[in-house]
Design a binder for these strands. Structure first.
Lengths: 93, 93
DNA sequence: ACATCTTGCTACTAAAATCGTAGCAACGTA
DNA sequence: TACGTTGCTACGATTTTAGTAGCAAGATGT
């Protein structure tokens, strides 16, 4: 599973998740990702761009059409996460 | 997103994926995961067990009910991966 | 009883990934 | 020209993972 190996890297899923509502520039994206170090974030963005899942346009980094399709698949994961978080009494999402 | 941070660790997604068809013992699981090093695999399994997503029963490691629910959400991801793999002419899945 | 095999897992070192911080070059703005 | 913003690189410190060896406990065979 190449995809799982790719997405199983730090910030990969998170980036897709944070871009789901629209473009963010590098620094916005960074602070959205708990201030991930710029070196890793940049590397991950390169990889995601190679996958043509993310692109860098006028308005900043954004999901491509393919990326949005992939991002949509994360919604159920999020729903699951929220459910189990509630199950454990966690505060965050 | 605690979940994404958790799943964004080496072999986490992969373990869920490899257990989707039933229990595997430690060594089977390891070879299913490209012979991941036992130290990391074991650590990941501990974490997944803490999440009550994986458990260690008579037949080996297996998904819990919650785990199966989560695993089911990976199927669309796999479908997506297969599609894009075809798009790039990759051989593997 | 005894040796053998399997299984889950630990130990340990080397390599790789990530963190955390500083700061630069390019660009726009005043 | 001075100043702020943005995307990004550099680099040492820390954390994670890789890779290999092997042990303890239980099953199995003889």
């Amino acid at each position: 599973m190449v995809l799982l190996d790719m997405l199983g890297r730090r910030w990969a899923l998170r980036v897709l998740w944070e871009l789901r509502h629209g473009p963010l520039n590098f620094r916005q994206l960074r602070s959205a990702c708990d201030d991930a170090s710029p070196s890793v974030l940049n590397r991950r963005l390169s990889e995601l761009r190679e996958l043509t899942v993310v692109e860098h346009g006028e308005r900043g980094y954004q999901l491509t059409t393919e990326g949005e399709r992939l991002g949509a698949l994360l919604l159920p994961l999020d729903a699951w996460a929220r459910k189990t978080a509630r199950r454990w009494g966690d505060a965050d999402s």
